[in-house]
Deep mutational scan, measured.
Amino acid sequence: QKEELKEKAKEAVKRGNKDKARELLKRAGISEEEAKKIIKKIE
């Protein structure tokens, strides 16, 4: 489940939808700070 949400978040970032990505990562139980780092890494 968590990995699936991370994959979806990756796709969202690639489409330029960072808010959606952050939302998905939060749903995966990832903190706001972690989510920001992950999104930065994907960009």
Score class of each variant (00 low, 15 high):
12 A>V: 02
12 A>M: 13
28 A>Y: 05
2 K>N: 11
43 E>N: 05
9 A>L: 09
20 K>V: 12
5 L>P: 02
6 K>L: 15
43 E>D: 05
42 I>Y: 13
3 E>M: 08
3 E>R: 08
34 E>M: 08
5 L>R: 03
41 K>Y: 12
29 G>W: 01
24 L>Q: 00
16 G>R: 04
35 A>V: 10
13 V>C: 06
18 K>G: 05
38 I>T: 02
25 L>S: 00
33 E>R: 09
22 R>V: 13
6 K>D: 03
4 E>D: 11
41 K>N: 11
18 K>C: 14
24 L>Y: 09
14 K>L: 15
23 E>V: 05
18 K>Y: 15
33 E>S: 09
38 I>P: 00
40 K>S: 13
27 R>G: 04
14 K>D: 03
10 K>N: 04
15 R>S: 12
32 E>Y: 07
14 K>E: 06
32 E>H: 05
21 A>R: 02
24 L>R: 02
8 K>G: 04
1 Q>R: 12
1 Q>V: 12
25 L>H: 00
25 L>E: 01
42 I>T: 05
38 I>L: 10
25 L>V: 00
39 I>S: 01
43 E>V: 08
32 E>P: 07
12 A>S: 04
5 L>S: 03
42 I>E: 04
12 A>D: 02
31 S>D: 09
43 E>I: 11
4 E>A: 12
4 E>K: 11
24 L>E: 00
21 A>Q: 01
10 K>D: 03
18 K>D: 04
41 K>R: 12
8 K>L: 14
31 S>K: 04
4 E>Y: 14
27 R>I: 07
3 E>H: 09
10 K>P: 02
37 K>I: 13
10 K>W: 09
1 Q>M: 13
29 G>A: 01
30 I>L: 13
36 K>E: 15
31 S>P: 08
25 L>Y: 04
3 E>T: 07
21 A>I: 04
13 V>W: 13
29 G>E: 02
11 E>H: 07
36 K>S: 14
38 I>K: 01
2 K>S: 11
34 E>P: 00
10 K>S: 06
38 I>E: 03
2 K>Q: 12
2 K>P: 09
5 L>F: 07
38 I>A: 02
1 Q>E: 12
14 K>Q: 10
22 R>Y: 15
17 N>G: 03
18 K>R: 10
19 D>Q: 11
15 R>G: 08
3 E>K: 08
32 E>T: 06
8 K>D: 05
29 G>V: 00
27 R>S: 08
27 R>Q: 13
9 A>G: 01
36 K>G: 10
38 I>V: 04
36 K>A: 15
17 N>P: 01
37 K>G: 08
8 K>N: 05
10 K>T: 08
21 A>Y: 03
20 K>S: 07
18 K>P: 11
26 K>M: 15
5 L>V: 05
13 V>Y: 12
10 K>H: 07
31 S>L: 05
32 E>N: 07
25 L>A: 03
23 E>S: 08
42 I>N: 03
7 E>N: 10
28 A>S: 04
9 A>C: 04
16 G>P: 01
18 K>Q: 08
43 E>L: 12
23 E>I: 07
15 R>T: 09
40 K>I: 11
16 G>V: 02
38 I>W: 13
25 L>C: 10
37 K>F: 09
39 I>Q: 01
37 K>Y: 10
4 E>V: 11
16 G>Y: 04
37 K>E: 14
19 D>V: 09
34 E>A: 07
28 A>P: 00
25 L>P: 03
3 E>N: 09
15 R>K: 10
23 E>M: 09
6 K>Y: 15
37 K>Q: 13
43 E>R: 06
8 K>C: 14
21 A>N: 00
37 K>W: 10
33 E>H: 07
7 E>F: 09
19 D>H: 08
33 E>A: 10
40 K>R: 12
31 S>A: 06
29 G>C: 05
11 E>P: 02
1 Q>K: 11
33 E>W: 07
28 A>N: 01
37 K>D: 12
4 E>N: 10
19 D>W: 11
19 D>R: 12
1 Q>D: 13
29 G>Y: 00
39 I>K: 01
12 A>N: 03
7 E>K: 11
7 E>S: 08
14 K>C: 13
32 E>A: 09
18 K>N: 10
9 A>S: 02
19 D>Y: 09
24 L>M: 06
26 K>G: 07
23 E>L: 09
33 E>G: 06
3 E>S: 07
42 I>D: 02
37 K>L: 13
9 A>P: 01
24 L>V: 01
7 E>C: 12
11 E>S: 06
32 E>R: 05
35 A>P: 00
41 K>Q: 14
39 I>L: 08
